[in-house]
Simulated scan of single mutants.
Amino acid sequence: MSQKVAVYRHEHFNAAHRLYNPAWSMEQNDAVFGKCNNPSFHGHNYELVVKVIGVPDPETGYVLDLKWLSDLIKREVHTRFDHKNLNLDTSEFQQLNPTAENIAIVIYNLLRPHIDADKDLQVRLYETPRNFVEYPV
């Protein structure tokens, strides 16, 4: 079989963050980030969908074992970000604004080294039911 198939794993985590640029005034941060610039932070129930594309293995029929992918996401993402303040509790966002876009890129970079190079990887992150990002596009 030489046809590619996409498989998906849906996970979630909860985290708080604040969007702001420390080089800007409070007024500029408020104008750009609005309520997301709350100095007391705010939280989201993030929904994460990880997509892996590849050719199914002829012996197993799997692109990859979805239980293995779930364990990888729990190890690399959930334990790192769930119930954390992304700005204060994580090394990844000490100098990086934790926008949904940046969170998706960070998650991709955490997972990519563990997925075989012959497989494509995409991360979709829902910050709210109506707002989501994908990386890469």
Rank of each mutant, 00 (worst) to 15 (best):
V63K: 07
Q122R: 13
N87K: 10
H78R: 07
P58N: 13
P129D: 09
G61L: 05
N21T: 03
G54W: 11
G54V: 09
H44G: 01
M26E: 15
E101L: 06
V50M: 05
T79A: 08
P56A: 06
A23H: 13
P39I: 12
L125H: 02
H83T: 01
D71W: 09
P136Y: 10
D120P: 03
Q95P: 00
N38G: 08
K119Y: 11
D116F: 13
R124M: 12
L88P: 00
N21M: 08
V123N: 02
H42K: 12
D89W: 08
L111Y: 05
P56K: 04
D82W: 05
F13L: 05
M1G: 14
Y62T: 00
N14E: 15
L125C: 02
G34E: 13
A100N: 10
L86F: 04
E11D: 15
L96S: 04
V55H: 10
I73P: 05
Y46N: 03
I53V: 14
L69V: 07
E27F: 08
N29Q: 04
Y135M: 08
L121V: 09
D118A: 11
L96G: 06
F93D: 02
Q122I: 06
S40T: 12
N87W: 05
P129Y: 10
S91E: 15
D30K: 15
W68M: 06
I115K: 01
R9N: 09
S25I: 11
F132G: 00
K4L: 13
E92W: 14
R80G: 01
P98I: 05
K4T: 14
N37S: 14
N37D: 05
Y108R: 04
S40R: 15
Q122D: 03
A31C: 06
M1N: 13
M26T: 10
M1P: 08
A117D: 11
H42R: 11
R9M: 10
V55G: 00
Q28L: 13
D30Y: 14
N14H: 15
A104K: 01
K74S: 04
L64I: 10
V49P: 01
A104E: 00
K74Q: 11
N21A: 09
D82I: 03
S25D: 11
E92H: 14
G54E: 10
V32G: 03
Q122H: 11
N14W: 14
C36N: 09
L125Q: 03
D116H: 12
V7G: 01
F13N: 01
L88C: 09
P98A: 09
L19I: 09
K74N: 12
P129T: 05
F93Q: 00
V49H: 01
Q122L: 08
I73S: 06
S40D: 14
E101I: 04
V32S: 05
V137D: 13
V32W: 12
E134L: 08
L110Q: 07
Q28D: 12
D118N: 15
N85M: 12
Y108G: 02
V49N: 02
N38R: 13
L64Y: 06
G61P: 00
V106C: 08
V63P: 04
E127V: 07
E134M: 11
C36H: 06
A104T: 03
Y62L: 14
L110K: 09
P136N: 10
N45P: 00
E11W: 10
E92N: 12
F33Y: 15
V123A: 05
D120W: 09
E76L: 12
I53C: 07
E27L: 14
V7S: 05
D89T: 06
